[in-house]
């Protein structure tokens, strides 16, 4: 239990630093920016209580906000992501393929399941984030294409990370 806690804590710190120091500086064609840090919310165990998910989402987003001078923007988007997570899991899995004490990871849930899970949540998060950031529906197509491009980039990074680091 303590070991698990420590593991998630390390993952949190590494993801926030990775996001703030490296990924926020990636500029493909000027406006594509991957947001890998949400991987933390995606990988929390299935039995995490929903209120805890929301709090963690909020404070994870807030910590990214502190680094990127955008109070509230990431916090709102990650809270939204944390709110959607349980519904997405219910939507894409039948009752019997989730065992207690398992985690939503690629090697446990299979490629198809994990891909659907990542796709839905990352798209939801990025759309929310980019529209909250510009705070208007003017230039809808432009914002939409920015969020879709960034989302596909994030999804690739998440899948790759599952093969490289979390394969166990």
């Amino acid at each position: 239990m303590i070991r698990d806690l420590l593991k998630y804590l390390i993952m949190l710190v590494v993801l926030v630093l990775l996001q703030a120091l490296i990924l926020n500086n990636i500029q493909f064609s000027g406006y594509v920016n991957p947001y890998l840090y949400i991987l933390f919310i995606l990988l929390l165990p299935f039995e995490t209580p929903r209120y805890l998910l929301l709090f963690m989402g909020f404070f994870l987003g807030l910590s990214i906000d502190v680094f990127s001078n955008t109070p509230g923007i990431h916090a709102s988007a990650t809270t939204f992501l944390a709110f959607l997570r349980p519904f997405t899991i219910d939507l894409i899995s039948s009752r019997d393929n989730i065992e207690v004490s398992s985690t939503p990871r690629l090697h446990q849930m299979g490629f198809g399941w994990f891909m659907r899970y990542t796709l839905i949540l990352v798209l939801a998060h990025h759309l929310f984030l980019f529209f909250i950031e510009v705070f208007t529906f003017d230039g809808f197509i432009y914002t939409l294409s920015r969020s879709l491009l960034s989302a596909s980039f994030t999804i690739v990074l998440i899948i790759v990370s599952q093969f490289l680091i979390f394969k166990e």
Binding site: R50, Y51, L54, F55, G57, F58, G61, D65, T70, P71, G72, I73, A75, S76, T79, F80, F83, I132, F135
Partner: peptide, 22 residues
């Protein structure tokens, strides 16, 4: 519906942050 209300509360806090910042 405590989860939903918590969600709403956190989103409202975020929005207040965003708007003040604007």
């Amino acid at each position: 519906f405590h989860v939903f209300f918590l969600f709403l509360a956190l989103e409202i806090i975020s929005l207040i942050l965003i708007v003040n910042y604007n």
